[in-house]
């Protein structure tokens, strides 16, 4: 099967450059099957080793602030309302009313139909992809299952972009991936990337969710990471948060290793977003350590690393207050959103 239209699409440029212009299901499969395997025991041992780093005093203070700057504050509930989104945005803009030096989060992440509400609530604080303010990220492509036709997925994406989303979090077709139809997965990512294009030619940032909990093996995670990058992902993201296990440290480490390999090969920097299940500051700090020691500190910026989380922020705020005052307050001293 030839992936015909993708040859013409700009987002597939990476794949063409690496694999060649005769991009076929077969050439794609050959490339992915040629990737080095992953030894699960060794990967998990390395992640466990990184998790033993002891981050104290000034390093901890910096880490806590950095975590806040890297958070995509998320609400992805069937029960989401404009009011809930407004509350989330208020929290994103002013995480700790008792301390104005608290940084803002990177983005709010909502369902596509809530994008307009988020944009309105942000008002002038909307970064719209700029260097200051808060971005609006939307999950799209029949999130979280991804079980819809390509046409529906593209419409979902275009809707969100048109409503003002700066970032699109798409899901890959895990069914296609697991049945070996890498070309289908590739084509869909390429097409969604194209749907991220705005009328003025600029593009919304594309995060590709692999849903690692459904891919099951580390070898699969590595292949899917490569596939997503080749197809044009700006970010690779672990999970929807709707499937267990969601983000784990070994999976994130593995994705960072792929990103590192890509950087060595091309000089291009791809972002990574672990999402789901990261609830404590202690956990989040382990991710920062893993990023810094795997790809380098320059990845600890919102354009290259994000946490997809909802409850993490309040734990970080509690820890931040503890570091400043020397004692723990309690859950009633941080605001719920």
């Amino acid at each position: 099967m030839t992936i015909e239209q993708s040859v013409a699409l700009a987002p597939a440029a990476r794949a063409i450059q690496l694999i060649g212009t005769d991009l076929t299901e077969k050439s794609l499969k050959l490339h992915l099957d040629g990737l080095s395997g992953v030894d699960a025991v060794g990967l998990e041992a390395r992640a466990a080793g990184l998790a033993t780093r002891s981050i104290k005093t000034t390093s901890k203070a910096w880490a806590l602030d950095t975590i806040i700057r890297l958070i995509d504050l998320t609400t992805l509930e069937g029960a989401d309302t404009p009011g809930k989104v407004q509350s989330l945005v208020a929290k994103a803009m002013n995480p700790d009313p008792s301390d104005p030096t608290t940084p803002r989060v990177a983005a709010v992440c909502v369902y596509g139909d809530m994008v307009a509400d988020a944009v309105a609530a942000l008002g002038s604080a909307h970064a719209a992809g700029g260097p200051t303010g808060i971005n609006v990220a939307a999950v799209a492509t029949a999130f979280p299952s991804g079980r819809a036709s390509l046409a529906v997925k593209l419409a979902d994406t275009r809707d969100a972009v048109a409503a003002g989303a700066d970032e699109i979090d798409m899901v890959i077709d895990r069914g296609a991936f697991l049945s070996g139809r890498y070309g289908v997965v590739f084509e869909q990512i390429v097409a969604v990337k194209e749907a991220c294009r705005r009328d003025d030619g600029s593009m919304a940032h594309l995060k590709v969710i692999l849903e690692t909990g459904e891919l099951n093996t580390y070898d699969n995670v590595r292949k899917a990471s490569w596939l997503a990058i080749l197809a044009g992902a700006d970010f690779i993201k672990t999970s929807t948060g709707k499937v267990q296990p969601a983000a784990t440290l070994p999976v994130t480490l593995l994705m960072l290793q792929v990103v590192n390999d890509w950087n060595r090969l091309t000089g291009e920097k791809i972002g990574v977003k672990p999402a789901g299940g990261i609830r404590s500051s202690k956990d989040a700090i382990r991710y920062l350590v893993t990023v810094a020691e795997t790809v380098g500190e320059e990845w600890l910026h919102p354009h290259l690393f994000r946490f997809g989380a909802s409850s993490l922020l309040n734990d970080v705020l509690l820890q931040r207050q503890k570091l400043k005052t020397g004692h723990y307050s309690g859950p009633d001293y941080v605001t719920i959103d």
Binding site: K56, T57, S59, W62, T66, E297
Partner: peptide, 10 residues
């Protein structure tokens, strides 16, 4: 400051 210069944790 560099994060990787972790503060001493003796």
């Amino acid at each position: 400051m560099s994060f990787l210069e972790y503060a001493p944790a003796p």
